[in-house]
């Protein structure tokens, strides 16, 4: 009986199909267990790429220096660390029209300035004797210096162009007052001579008009004594303001 039982069980085997199916199932299980690690690695790699992409995008598209271009169209070019224009902002309606008519994004700042100066809107005004002011402001002094020199170089042929350097603090104050930097600097000069002048008063004026106003006020201040000059040039300045704007 023992022998019979041993013999019977000895004849029973796990079929090849059963073994092969099981080996395949083991392989699948092995791969399934491993895959989460693979997913994790892929997810991590994607995240790194995404962050690098976002970082790179920010790095490239964050302006480091601003060029304020004022004649009466007032606009501001944001220039990144590679001296490329990455943002264009208009500060008045004329400026918006000009911005809409030109494609300045991603141009080298010098090429952008050349296109602006050559644009009909600005060229006509320059020809008519208006003043173009280009003001450079940014945290990186080396870049500001480089951009100022570049701006001077590419507008060297123009008589009525003035290039200045400003600073970031002034830029923020200008934006707070609703003016572009170039105009704000002129406004500060004007306000020093006539404290009653407000930012709104100069917003609609051309740079030439503001400069002339400053000129007339300082002339008054020079030609007359401080004591009795106050009332007079205040009056004149108001006359000018309402006459021109």
């Amino acid at each position: 009986m023992d022998e019979q039982i041993r013999e019977v069980f000895g004849q029973l085997h796990a079929g090849e199909a059963m073994k092969e199916n099981t080996k395949a199932a083991l392989d699948r299980a092995r791969n399934r267990r491993r895959r989460p690690v693979g997913y994790l690695a892929v997810a991590a790699a994607c995240l790194v790429l995404l962050l690098a992409g976002l970082g790179g995008y920010r790095y490239y598209f964050t302006p480091t220096t601003y060029l304020s271009v004022d004649i009466n169209p007032s606009l501001e070019l944001g220039v990144n660390r590679f001296d490329k224009v990455v943002s264009v902002r208009a500060w008045n309606e004329d400026g918006q029209e000009l911005v809409d008519s030109l494609e300045l994004n991603l141009l080298d700042y010098q090429e952008a300035l050349e296109r602006l100066v050559a644009s009909e809107s600005i060229a006509d005004r320059l020809a008519a004797g208006e003043l173009l002011s280009i003001t450079v402001a940014g945290e990186n002094e080396a870049q500001c210096g480089r951009l100022l020199a570049g701006a001077e170089a590419c507008t060297a042929g123009q008589e009525n162009v003035r290039c200045h350097q400003g600073d970031v603090e002034e830029l923020e104050q200008a934006h707070h007052a609703g003016l572009s930097l170039g105009k704000y600097q002129a406004f500060l000069e004007l306000q020093a001579l006539d404290p009653t002048v407000t930012a709104e008063d100069v917003a609609g004026l051309t740079m030439r008009q503001i400069r002339d106003w400053i000129g007339s006020l300082s002339q008054d201040a020079d030609s007359q004594g401080k004591g009795n000059g106050q009332g007079h040039h205040g009056e004149e300045s108001h006359g000018y303001r309402f006459g021109q704007s």
Binding site: F9, L12, H13, A14, G15, M18, K19, N21, T22, K23, A25, L26
Partner: peptide, 28 residues
């Protein structure tokens, strides 16, 4: 292990389960 213990596992399944599908399940 499948080669070495497959037969034992299969026989144990058989004396308990009496059904091929269950045997395959338990075997795996």
């Amino acid at each position: 292990a499948v080669e070495r213990y497959g037969d034992t596992v299969r026989r144990l399944c058989m004396i308990h389960l009496k059904n091929e599908a269950d045997t395959q399940d338990i075997f795996q």
